[in-house]
Amino acid sequence: MRREEGTSESEADEREQHTAIAAILAAAIDSEQARDVWRLIDQAKSILLLAHERPDPDALGSALGLAHVLSPLGKECVVACADPVPANYAFLPGHESVVSRLPHQHFDLVIALDAGELGRYGALYTRYQSFFDTATILNLDHHVTSSGCGQVTIIDPASAATAELLTLLLLNREIAINLDAAKCLLAGIITDTRSFEYDATTERTLLAGSYLVGCGAIPEEIIKPYYRVKALAKARLWGIVLDRSLQSAAGGSIVWACVRRDYVREAGATADMDDGLASYLVDIDGVAFSVIFEEQDATTTKISIRTSAPHDAAAIAAAFGGGGHLRAAGAVLPMDIEAAVDRVIARIEASL
């Protein structure tokens, strides 16, 4: 490789390596599928990018990251999510621009990210259902349980995160990934793999992360605020939940706890502050399944499931109409929290 004037040998080597990684990742996605996706995007001027309800950094990072890429190409992008962006997601550039109500309903294209069913977009879908039911939708997701909801859909379970899939897509189409986009996409990959820990992490996942770091994204700026920094109210909530509701079964291989609405009020917390608690419990020695039961209202309960190998969280969630990953999944059950505990724990016990 010819070294550019004013470039050190080490810088030239890094640039060459960065280019080589891009070529490997670009070849890892079917080019015909990538062309179909980009044809829809290229034809659109006004684009709505959707993150699913109760968003995680992969959903929001994918939506914001793609917006950061498309805006310099002259696209008018709106990123929307039914629920507010959690306070500890401030590491995502552009997080303050996310809306929960559509400014208009005249978008040329809707890009639905990190979920394969329109119902997963929550109140956004129910509020604007007539619009979504006639809109042109591009659906990009990686969950094995997704059914797909777009005229063009790519569901790639081989990707550890939707952000990984987007990285492959953009590189295949030779679209530049700027710094803000790289930060958002790296956040999606890091958080959906728990810092490259889950067994969904592959050599390709690590290469995608490496490429985004090469674009200037810094892992510590994601990992510290997401995994290590906690609000005092969150610590209070976890303490209340664990003190009052932590239980186990099957010789300690199943552990669970309940997040009740009055616990949240007592701690001065917000509903999203149970995030991370299921992962904390699955790290207890000998645990195969951990479950957090979150009381949504008197007749609705949300569950978050985490597993250790070889147990399948998605299979349990799917039995209750939910889905997700092998090691992390969830569902919403139309029943009170006591009934949900009985049903879900019985199902898990039967699977062991």
Score class of each variant (00 low, 15 high):
A158P: 00
Y128M: 11
R173Q: 15
V344G: 12
G239F: 06
A82W: 06
L92Y: 04
V98E: 09
Y280A: 08
A217V: 05
A339E: 13
L138G: 03
L40I: 07
K302H: 13
V99R: 13
N172V: 14
G286M: 09
Y128C: 09
K75H: 09
E197W: 15
A340R: 07
Y125A: 13
D42N: 08
S130H: 11
P157E: 14
D13E: 15
G251C: 05
A319W: 12
D262E: 15
T193M: 12
V85S: 03
V152R: 10
S195M: 05
H52M: 05
N178H: 12
F107T: 01
L166Q: 03
C184G: 12
R173I: 02
R260V: 01
G324R: 14
H106Y: 01
G286S: 12
Q43R: 15
S146T: 02
T191E: 03
D141N: 15
E11L: 07
R260S: 09
I154C: 08
S8L: 05
I316N: 11
L277F: 01
A208F: 08
P93R: 00
R120I: 10
L73N: 10
R15M: 11
I345V: 01
I155V: 11
S146V: 07
V291C: 11
E16V: 08
L171H: 13
D272Y: 06
E11G: 11
F132D: 03
A59H: 04
V99D: 02
I305M: 05
V69E: 04
L168D: 13
N178V: 07
A160F: 00
